[in-house]
């Protein structure tokens, strides 16, 4: 029989709840109110029921943006997680000058603001003045991210990998550093191969931090806005118009507040669901069935 949980401690977080109410709950309530009404400005609203939800759920434009978003997130996760683990595995295990240098170098991209990252890559990829674009075109590649959808995708993916793989490396490295030396010594006595050490010692010990890394990278890549917006503006055409870019176009570009609000709620629910799944997996990992 498990001991009942006393929930009274939650009252201690009331100040934070009040703060969150003003920063998140009240805006969210407003978005819900907007989602059921039409507005022509001047704070005049007309009840439309579920019309905007039906429109968004059946909209081909939103389906396409969702497809691009899922594809982008999957590609990011497939590249960044294994690459991050690979780099972490090859970093020096003992503290020293090289370790410090590696950590500082890895942390650098994480310190750069999103819009600056976008601007750096926007210039870097340009064929006329950018180093990457110039080298690629000098080598004979027909590279132009402003006109070719594939090039735009490659540029955005490489930019995201450059920006965020460090986070996975740092988290994985923290997980690796927490493994006691005795495990490696035991593996050495057993003459375990490098793969066996990774599979049976390092990977299980990194499981929790890797789940956090996947959760963070999923959320961030699923909500990505600034970098692709600065680099491609969602183009060429709609090739890199992800959900958040499409949402901003709808809300601010077209001033369709009602459909944009319905879109936001659906978007929020999808992220909430995935985060709950990850959170549940994290909290239940390693617990033995009772």
């Amino acid at each position: 029989m498990t001991k009942p949980i006393n929930q009274r401690a939650w009252f201690l977080v009331l100040p934070v709840l009040i703060l969150v109410a003003f920063s998140a709950v009240i805006p969210l309530m407003t978005v819900v109110n907007y989602a059921f009404q039409d507005s022509f400005g001047n704070n005049e609203f007309f009840w439309v029921g579920f019309e905007w939800f039906e429109e968004i759920l059946r909209s081909e434009r939103v389906h396409d943006a969702l497809g691009r978003q899922i594809l982008f997130t999957l590609i990011i996760l497939v590249i960044e997680i294994p690459l991050g683990v690979f780099v972490a595995l090859h970093m020096p295990r003992k503290s020293g000058t090289w370790t410090s240098i590696c950590l500082v170098l890895l942390a650098l991209p994480l310190l750069i603001p999103w819009n600056v990252v976008g601007t750096i890559w926007q210039i870097f990829g340009r064929v006329d003045i950018g180093l990457l674009g110039y080298i690629l075109s000098s080598l004979g590649f027909d590279y132009n991210y402003t006109q070719d959808s594939f090039d735009a995708w490659v540029t955005i993916i490489i930019m995201d990998v450059w920006h965020w793989t460090s986070l996975v490396v740092l988290l994985s490295y923290a997980g690796l550093r927490s493994i006691p030396d005795a495990y490696y010594q035991a593996a050495k006595i057993d003459q375990a191969s490098r793969w066996s050490i990774f599979r049976h010692i390092e990977l299980p010990k990194m499981k929790n931090v890797l789940l956090i890394a996947i959760l963070l990278r999923f959320m961030d890549s699923f909500m990505i806005y600034t970098e692709p917006f600065v680099v491609t503006g969602g183009g060429p055409g709609n090739a890199t118009t992800f959900l958040s870019i499409d949402l901003v176009k709808m809300a601010i570009g077209q001033f369709d507040l009602g459909p944009a609000a319905a879109f936001s709620i659906i978007y929020f629910l999808v992220i909430l669901l995935v985060c709950w799944v990850f959170y549940t997996v994290m909290m239940n990992t390693g617990k033995v069935d009772g």
Binding site: T2, K3, I5, Q7, R8, M283, N284
Partner: peptide, 18 residues
């Protein structure tokens, strides 16, 4: 929850839930 605190339990999802 205050009047009658309940223990978390495991159901068909095999996860602990309050």
């Amino acid at each position: 929850a205050i009047i009658k605190p309940q223990a978390p339990r495991r159901g068909i999802l095999r996860i602990e839930t309050t």
